[in-house]
Every structure is written in C-alpha cells, then in structure tokens.
Write a protein that binds this DNA or RNA. Structure first.
Length: 455
RNA sequence: GCGGGAGUGGCUUAGUGGUAUAGCGUCGCCUUGCCAAGGCGAAGGUCGCGAGUUCGAGUCUCGUCUUCCGCUCCA
C-alpha cells in the first residue's frame, strides 16, 4: 500500500482531490473533489444506492434538508452531548471540561449542569481548583466547544434564530418515518436511506479526506419490531461487509470491531475498519439504536411515534438498526486499496489504479493510432461513445504512453482507431485487467463496455 | 488547542544578502502501426501571505495561513 503523502500527491496530480480554497492558502480539513474524484464518488454513491435502496426489498430513499428545526437536536441529544465547556491548563497544556473539574473537585456534591460558563469560572477560582495533572492553578477561560456548526436564520443574530448544520443525516430519516410509511404504504420492517452532507466542527487534523469539517454520509435506517432488532443487526453487519467487498476492498484490509462501551443510544454497535495508509480506521458503523430515537422524538414533539401493525394489531415504537457509511471515507479507502506503484527495470516508477470496472471514473479512452491518419474517424467514435459512457479522447504522444496514462487512473477500456476502422468500422478494444485486445464494431464495443462497467 | 519541522512553475528540486536553477510533466510541430522511443520548439514562478531590518531579502526578524510528525480531543 502506498503512503499518505504519495496518495495525496497522486490525487492532486490526476484530479481526484484538490486542497480546498488552495489559491488563498487553503482551509484546514477541507478538500475539493476534482474531475476524476467526483466521478469516483458518484459511482460509489450510485453503488450504495443500488445496494441499499434499489435492490433491497421494502427500502425507500430520502433527501432531507440540512437545516432542521433546532428541537430535533435537543431530542437527539446533540445539543447537550456535542457541546463542551473546555478549559486548558496553561502550565501543563492539559485540557479539561469545566463541569467535570467542578464535579470531581466537589466529589459530586456540586452539579455543574445548571451553571453558566461565568459561574463555572467563578466557582473554579473561588474554590482554588487545581489542575488534576500538574496541581497548578492557571487555567484559561472557558471556551465553548460545540461540534455542531451554528448559523443564523433571518437577518438578526440572536439565539431565537439560531439553526444548526446537521451533524448526521439520520435524524431526517427518523422525523420522516411516518411520512414515508404512509405515502409509500410501507409495512414494518422497512428501510429509509439517504446520502447527504453533514458538518462537524472537528479540532482534530484530518488525515486527508478521512476526517473533514464537511463530509458526506450514506446512511440507512431499518425500522423493525422490537425483538427482531438483533436478527437484523446481524443481517446488516453482513450486508456492510458485502458492500465493502463490492467497493473492491480486500478481506485482509477489513476488520470488524464490536463495541463493548456503547453510546447512550445504542444497544449494540459494530464498526467496519479499513486498513488505511495511516492505520486501521473506521469506514462504517452498524448500530442497534433500539427505539431510543423515535421515543425521544415522541417525547419532544408530542407526536405519536407508535406504529400500528395492520396484521397483528399491535402498537409499538419501531426499533432501528442503522448502517452508516462515510462516502468520503469509502472513496479514500477505494483509492488507497487500488493505487499501486510499480518499479520498472530502468528504476523509474509507474502508477496503476487497480480499481473495479464499475467504480472507475473514466470508462473508456478513445485513441487514433496515428493522429494524422485516424484522428477524424476517432473523433467520430468518441462522439458515439460519450453519448453512453464517461470517456475521454487522447491523440497526443505515443500509443504506449496513452495506455499508461489511462492505466494510472484506472480506465478499464482503451479503444483504438486504425486503418481497419476506416475500412470496415472495427475498433480495437484493450482491457486493462486482462491486457487482451479484441476487435469489434463500434456499436458492439459500446454495448460491451456498458455491460462491463455500469452500476 | 500545545510542542517541533516544512512551504521556490503542476511535481521534484538548486539557491547561506546582489538579475530565479534544472529535471520530470504539460502544450505545438516532425517522426512513430499497439504498451512511458526519438528530434525541434513553447508556455508556466510577484520564491505561501503580510509587515520589518537593509542601498538591496527566496535567503535575516516578527506575525499569519497551510501542511507534516508527536501530544490532546473525538458523535
């Protein structure tokens, strides 16, 4: 596997990923997908959609608003658990939560929950609270650290108009549970999925596109009867594995970790880990969230969230098994897994993107064998191909160099136009995986490439 | 957020206070009948950004942004 520096350089060089706002010196943890990157990511999203929505019995798509009623985030717990009052010790540089400092110092006799930041600062000063690590008394002021991005609705900046950019897409599926159920006449168990951007104000440097302040999630929520949740949880663990393999990730690059320490909403949780160049890290998560979310929304909204089973006439708040894939992480995993560097005999190196035919950003490249003899015909062939497939045309340099260029970005098929094409319309189709060359007419070549590469 | 490195055409890089180097890549022409051949030519850099010191700064100082390594944090 290539190292991270090489991968980042490759991505910029070929047009997969560029640093965000680069001409202004960039913006930390933001990246732009280039011409090839957007094709790759779209292919990944299409494959996910096909796997989880299209080719899945009783599953429905959704595309929710990024800005939601702030009450949603109260109900989900994000407004409290995503927001920490932080203080740093100026002496030893350790960081603490102010409420934890107070509660630990008072041995639990003081509850800091109702205190304002000013009150907490005052309390810490009055009681001469020492740094638990270095025992000194030199804290910074409280800085409110909220993982959610806040913005304002309307023209007046005040708390009444504060709205948040969603930190996960899942809540959109939860609040629309009955809209989907009713409009689609869906029966539990059924699933709702969506692909969309989420935003988190992360402080951690990000390992390229692995952790960014703005990222795309592919989330699928399966709503089921209480008691069936563990069965479906096992089912979706297997499905996540199958999808990872369909991305072209190899068995030995994937690891599974069942959580013992669980988040407040989950009954059981499993993460899919991928061996990234910087280490083993999370690619996806499967969570049995129980009926926690819908019950919370029932409490907070006052709306009934109980489903009436039309066959048994039972009423229950559905359990939810969530499968959450990172779209950007998936793209990064695919690139990490596929990029190979070959050492040649003369000491130079060549890059090869050994990516699956379905995910390849460019499906075919069309070449005239000799520019001055075959360019006109080749341009016509290109015009035919691009009606059906994402493809490119290249008439520069030698034919071998053009093959190598396409190999370096994972293009599965190269189509060469030569004298024979001028005579009888046959082109030469070269397959990157097998290195085989076959001759066929243009229409057959297009059909064949479509059949091999479409999702 | 803390500590320490780094930033010169797309990439790699020379340059230790006196007019900005080269290779690769890219583009054009010639050549080339199938896996990075060859020849000729061209474009592309206010040296991350902003101040300061100096007659003069890519080079020294300060700030700032980005990035890498190590901590810290992490639904």
């Amino acid at each position: 596997m290539v190292d991270m520096l090489r991968l980042v350089a490759y991505c910029k060089d070929k047009g997969f990923v560029f640093p965000g706002s680069e001409i202004y010196g960039g913006l930390a943890n933001s990246w732009d997908y280039g011409p090839l990157g957007v094709e790759l990511k779209n292919n990944i999203k299409r494959l996910w959609w096909k796997t989880y929505i299209q080719d899945n019995e009783n599953a429905y798509g959704l595309d929710c608003a990024i800005l939601m009623n702030p009450e949603v985030w109260k109900a989900s717990g994000h407004l409290t658990s995503f927001s920490d009052p932080l203080m740093d010790c100026k002496e030893c540089k350790a960081r603490f939560r102010a409420d934890t400092l107070i509660e630990d110092f008072s041995k639990g006799s003081v509850c800091a929950d109702g205190m304002t930041n000013e009150q907490m600062e005052q309390w810490i000063q009055q009681h001469n609270v020492a740094c638990p690590l270095c025992k000194k008394h030199n804290f910074t002021n409280i800085r409110q650290f909220n993982l959610m991005f806040k913005t304002n609705r309307g023209v007046v900046e005040n708390d009444a108009s504060a709205v948040f950019l969603r930190p996960e897409t899942a809540q959109g599926q939860y609040v629309n549970f009955f809209n989907v159920q009713r409009s689609q006449r869906a029966k539990v168990p059924f699933g709702i999925g969506q692909i969309g951007k989420s935003f988190r104000n992360e402080i951690t440097p990000g390992n390229f596109t692995f952790r960014t302040i703005e990222f795309e999630q592919m989330e699928f929520q399966w709503f089921c009867r209480p008691g069936e949740d563990e069965k479906f949880y096992q089912y979706f663990k297997q499905k996540a594995h199958d999808f990872s393999c369909e991305l072209g990730l190899k068995n030995e690059e994937l690891k599974y970790h069942n959580h013992e320490k669980l988040a407040f909403y989950a009954k059981s949780a499993c993460d899919v880990y991928f061996q990234f160049p910087f280490g083993l890290s999370e690619l996806a998560g499967i969570h049995n969230r129980t009926n926690y979310d819908l019950k919370k929304h029932q409490e907070c909204s006052g709306k009934q969230m109980e489903y009436m089973d039309p066959i048994t006439n039972e009423k229950f708040v559905p359990y939810i098994v969530e499968t959450s894939f990172g779209a950007d992480r998936s793209a990064l995993a695919v690139l990490s897994s596929a990029l190979k560097v070959e050492k040649l005999e003369d000491g130079s190196e060549r890059e090869i993107l050994d990516i699956s035919l379905k995910l390849a950003p460019i499906k075919a490249a069309i070449f005239p064998l000799i520019k001055k003899n075959h360019a006109t015909k080749a341009e016509q062939v290109y015009a035919e191909f691009r009606k059906h497939l994402r493809c490119v045309y290249d008439d520069t340099a030698s034919i071998g160099k053009r093959y190598r260029r396409q190999d370096s970005i994972g293009t599965p098929f190269c189509v060469t136009v030569d004298d024979e094409t001028l005579k009888n319309g046959n082109v030469t189709l070269r397959n990157r995986n097998t290195m085989e060359q076959t001759t066929m007419d243009i229409a057959s070549a297009i059909s064949y490439v479509i059949s091999q590469t479409q999702i």
